[in-house]
Design a protein around this nucleic acid. Structure first.
Lengths: 161, 161
DNA sequence: TTACTTTGTTAGACATGTCTAATTTATGTG
DNA sequence: CACATAAATTAGACATGTCTAACAAAGTAA
C-alpha cells in the first residue's frame, strides 16, 4: 500500500545549519531527542546502547555538546537537550523522516533499507535538496492529475521486476 | 529543459562493495579516474588540487590505496589505477552520476547544488536504493503514459514557487 | 553503615585523515 | 654539467571519534 500523507507542514522550518555539527554529533543529538520522547530521563547508558557505542564515547560526546550549548548535563546526572539542542534535533529528525518517507513512498525502497540509508544520508543532504523533496511529495500528493496512479504503477513495477 | 535520456545501461553493473573503502579513499579513487580521463598522466599534484588537499595527504592516501591494490604507484612517478581500482572507480562514478542526474532531472535541484549533494551523498547510498533510482528514471523515461509531462509540470512548479 | 552492583568517568591507546615544515628527488635552463 | 625551481616525500603535530582498563560515584539491600 502506498501512503502519501506526507505533506503535513514539511515545507516549513527546515532552517539552516547554524551549528556546524559533525555527523557523529548530529547522531548524538538526534538520539538524545528520540530517547527523550520515550524515556522519563535519559542516561549515558541509554544513549550508548541506542547508538551502539560504549559509555566513554558518550561521555566524551556530551562534553562536546555541552560546550556547544546543545545539552544540559552534570556529571553522573541525567542528560537533557537545551532549547538550542532541541532545535537542532528537530531539523535533523525532520531531514531523516522526509528522506526515509521519500525513499519508501516514492522510490519504493523497502523499510529496513530506507531506514539504513536515510540514517546515513541525512547528514549529507542540503537544505535545498530537502526542500525539493518536500515539494515533490507535496506535488504528487496534491495534484489531481493522476500522479499517484503513476507512482502506484511504479511501485508495482519495482515489485514485479 | 528537462532531459531524461538517462537509461543507457544504468541497470547493470552496480555491483557490491567488495573493497570497503572509506569515504575519503573513494574520493581519491574517483578523482584519479576522472583525471585519467582528461590528462595524459596523473600526478600527485593533480590529485591534490582536484580534491583541495595538500600533497602529503595524497602521498599518504596513495600508500593506502596501493596496499589495497587499487593503484599502481612508484614513488615520484605517475599514478595509475589498477584494473581493480578502475572497477571501483566505475561503481563510484556511476553512483555519483545517477544520483546527480536524479537530483537534477527528477527533483529539479539546480546544477551546482546537485553536484555538491551527489558528491557528499554518493558514499552513503546503498546499492539497493541506487537500483531503485535507476528504475524510477527508466520508468519515467520509458512509460508512454505522460509521466514526463507531470515531471515537467513539477519542474515548472519548482521554478515558479 | 557496610558491602555489592550498576552506572559513569578518566586516562590513555589507536585509527583515520588532515596539515606544516623540512628534506629529497626530478626537471629544465643557462 | 650545474644550479635553480618544481614536485613529492618524510616526519611529526593535531583533530575527531572510537575503544579498553581502571577507578569513582550512586543506588540498593542487608
Amino acid at each position: 500500500m502506498i501512503k502519501l500523507n506526507l505533506s503535513e507542514g514539511h515545507s516549513k522550518d527546515i532552517s539552516g545549519d547554524q551549528f556546524e555539527l559533525s555527523e557523529s554529533m548530529e547522531d548524538y543529538v538526534e538520539t538524545i531527542s528520540q530517547l527523550e520522547d520515550r524515556l522519563k530521563a535519559v542516561r549515558v547508558k541509554n544513549i550508548a546502547s541506542a547508538l551502539k557505542v560504549k559509555m566513554p564515547s558518550v561521555s566524551s560526546a556530551l562534553g562536546v555538546l555541552a560546550k556547544k550549548g546543545l545539552v544540559k548535563y552534570e556529571k553522573y546526572g541525567y542528560v537533557e537537550l537545551t532549547e538550542q539542542g532541541q532545535g537542532v534535533a528537530h531539523q535533523v529528525r525532520k531531514r531523516h523522516d522526509i528522506l526515509k518517507k521519500f525513499l519508501k513512498d516514492v522510490l519504493a525502497v523497502e523499510e529496513n533499507n530506507a531506514e539504513r540509508d536515510s540514517c546515513r544520508m541525512e547528514h549529507h543532504i542540503s537544505k535545498n535538496t530537502i526542500n525539493n523533496i518536500i515539494k515533490f511529495i507535496e506535488y504528487i500528493d496534491r495534484c489531481p492529475k493522476g500522479e499517484k496512479i503513476y507512482l502506484k504503477h511504479f511501485h508495482d513495477y519495482v515489485k514485479s521486476g
